[in-house]
Amino acid sequence: MTGIRLRWRRPRGRHEQVAAALVAVAVATMLVKAAGAAWASVVRGWPVAVALAAAGLLGLCWWGLQRLHRQRTQAALAAALQIPLTQIDALNDQEFEFALRDLLVRDGWRARQVGQKGDQAADVIGQHTQRGRIVLQAKHTTVGGKVDSKVMYQVKGTAGPVHRADIAVVVTNGDFTRDAREWGERHQVHWVDRERLRQWADDGVPLHTLLNLPARRPRRSTVRRAA
């Protein structure tokens, strides 16, 4: 069964023509009145709209200024960060990791503390636009304590394959055995002993200057395509 189609036809006769004209005039009058009412509403309400827009703009500017102020304050505090060795010696293991994170931030890295059980030889991870990705393994010990080469093996085995790091560093407030130093230098695992830590934390020497880290592009993860 087909639907009924409605078709328009021209008015026939004088009576239909007059009726059609009256309907057209009525519709046009309604449209004019509606447009006039809309315009009047806009004219009456524009001060409110302008006030709301101005308030929103002022609020956005205030928020932006507050954020900029916070960033500058944090940057100023980070730039002035200095931690004496005596204070570092008094920290616990986790506090030591957070201190290393703050020192990286001071030096211009975006860094976070990640050390926990099963961290796979990474306590702090940082990212730098010019120097790539760095992994720090923190070894807080008693004064005179030494880090052996086993730690260097662990860091070397996970820094690149697991954490995609360009730079691997072991940091201690103690010292390293001779084997650990030599193995690290042969296999590109940097070490920061007590003296280097003093220069970094207390004297304010940036880590990349202390270790002579070259500028490089950050490592990009490789995406394997399915065969």
Rank of each mutant, 00 (worst) to 15 (best):
L60W: 14
D119H: 06
L91A: 02
Q130N: 04
E97L: 02
V143I: 13
R178A: 15
R186N: 10
A159L: 07
A165W: 03
W8R: 14
A24K: 12
R106A: 01
A138P: 00
V48G: 09
K33I: 14
M30I: 09
V155G: 03
G157D: 14
H208G: 03
N173P: 08
R196C: 07
R133W: 05
L77H: 11
H15F: 09
Q17I: 13
Q74E: 12
E195P: 00
S221H: 10
V151C: 09
K150N: 15
R216H: 05
A226L: 13
G36Y: 11
D123E: 11
P218Y: 03
G13K: 04
A79W: 04
K117C: 13
H187T: 13
A55Q: 13
Q82D: 02
W109N: 01
A201M: 11
W63I: 15
V162P: 00
K33R: 14
A90H: 00
D179F: 06
A80G: 13
R112E: 15
A21T: 07
H140Q: 12
R220T: 11
W200E: 05
K156L: 14
V42M: 02
N173G: 04
L81N: 01
A55D: 10
A35G: 10
Q66S: 13
Q71W: 08
V105Y: 01
